[in-house]
Design a protein around this nucleic acid. Sequence first.
DNA 1: CAAGTATACGCAAACGTTTGTGTTATTGTT
DNA 2: AACAATAACACAAACGTTTGCGTATACTTG
Lengths: 331, 331
Amino acid sequence: MRVTIKDVAQAANVSVSTVSRVLSNKENFFASKTADHVRKVAADLGYQRNAYAADLASHQSDVLAVVISATKSNFADEIIAGIHDVATKHGNSVMILYAGENNPTLQEKAIKTVIERDVMGVLIVALELGDESLNSLKTSGIPHIFLSTAAKENLGPFIASDDHAIGYEATKYLIEHGHRKIGLVGMDEQSFVGTQRMNGYREAMAEHSLSIDENWLVPGYFTFEDGEAAMQHFGKQPAVTAIIANSDLTAIGVIDQARDYGLEVPAQLSVMSIDGTKLTRIFRPTITSVTQDFFQIGRAGCAALLTGDNEPIQSKFLPIKVVERNSTRQL
Amino acid sequence: MRVTIKDVAQAANVSVSTVSRVLSNKENFFASKTADHVRKVAADLGYQRNAYAADLASHQSDVLAVVISATKSNFADEIIAGIHDVATKHGNSVMILYAGENNPTLQEKAIKTVIERDVMGVLIVALELGDESLNSLKTSGIPHIFLSTAAKENLGPFIASDDHAIGYEATKYLIEHGHRKIGLVGMDEQSFVGTQRMNGYREAMAEHSLSIDENWLVPGYFTFEDGEAAMQHFGKQPAVTAIIANSDLTAIGVIDQARDYGLEVPAQLSVMSIDGTKLTRIFRPTITSVTQDFFQIGRAGCAALLTGDNEPIQSKFLPIKVVERNSTRQL
DNA sequence: CAAGTATACGCAAACGTTTGTGTTATTGTT
DNA sequence: AACAATAACACAAACGTTTGCGTATACTTG
């Protein structure tokens, strides 16, 4: 049997309440002499507080939950690092829960877990929540925020990059470097992210009076394999001079396949990626990217949840930037 | 205020205990008619169980904790996927906690969190725990297991790959392919993993009566940068014909730097990695590796914790295999 | 039909904290 | 010296469950 606060109280010859107040540092409730004594006794006995009991009694937990897509988005780690960075400073614990991307059952299980534990807040990372889960979360009243999923209006507050701007800036960069025929690979037309990026692409093309051949648009997700497949679709003599890929991994898929076709990147084909994670720096050629600041997204999201005031959380976009590397060239 | 079991009981005109038993499916304790009714009322009222209260009363939680190194080991995801695979089937929740690699404070915080929550088990992934943390964990009595950290004797049960064998097999493979001068990059001499792998390397070399130049051994960790740095150490005319890197990322660092020196891989230098994650397949040249089955490590670890019997957990090694790809060649 | 046995349910204690409200000793004020 | 104010602590209720035990009812069995 574990040693409880009661055991400590007995051993220290004080009441349970005094022990509780000392151990949770409620100022002005005890003499420092008593406090020292209690703390010593607790340490001697090897007391470990029971977080469940404490949370139950106080109705407030100090844990933040991160719900995250199971399918490997390789930037999730950076977001999580950002979250931890500020959570640690505030003394909060972080628990991470994986949910499937398009697996409502897993999503609901994850959401159920966080609601049952009445966490103080939940961060949903790179995940478009199903209606059921979303609803549970909303009615639970637990503060939450979407990270890296700028979402449809009524979804809730988010912190993300502006996906429209991402599509726009990538396209603009390539146009300014002389490209006229630009492919777009791996966009999921069902998702908000995908459509936004496509809209940005279309806008940039239109602004420069460039017409779009719908064959240049190859849908997909964020995977390496989607990049390969897309490049296979373009074939050995691609109709485009440049390709924008929906993720770093997808860009690598495109480049690998292009090479297998004997096409040199960037000499014969420019490839640009979205995300700008470390992959773009270790791969050769290094990959020009629209870079998102995932670490800051994590930090900002966590901070928003921890401000403590009761004002509703403000959604916002964090800046993106185009980072030029060696996978693109001036035509 | 959330709706509690008491509210449900009132609305359904039964006792609290009945609601509890119905909702947690204690067979043979209620009539199915009552059960249906209770369940319906609970659903109508939007009842959400309070896991804290439940765990407190029953003294058993259904959550497994995964404590993991913050520094990005890119195979951790596979292990976690394996853990989830079996945890989900058993209906257990999984919470992940990040701890610093060599940051005892963060480690202790993570361990403290899991102990306070009295989780049903903890999986320590790719992390060598500090003495303090290890001690807390042991005295807490919570079942735990080390994954991918074959550890010093008294550390506790583990599931991992045999690091000695890893070093041995990699070296043997290269020797069998005609290499005589083999470098070893990124081994951390302080860690058990590092020394084991080095011992394997030494054994294989000795078995073939090959002597070792200590300059061939370049210590480090598991990072890309360590790979680059190591290759810089070898210089433009490396004294070795092949290099074994401590991780996939490190191998990539080696290859990138070699290329910058104008060395072709594998024509002029063979590079072999340890781990065999997806990186080895998307990078070009694809990287020959000693491949570990991280997914199975995760599965086995989780399963070991969930067997339920009280027998002590058995440590074991999972098989590894050498997978030939394009970064090595026959001399 | 009596006696025994399931079955279905309720009562209330327990889990380990937190916290509002007493209660006592101590100090300060006039 | 009398009284108020404060400091330091104790008491006990509450948090929302689970679960051992008790009990009323219905069902068997000989």
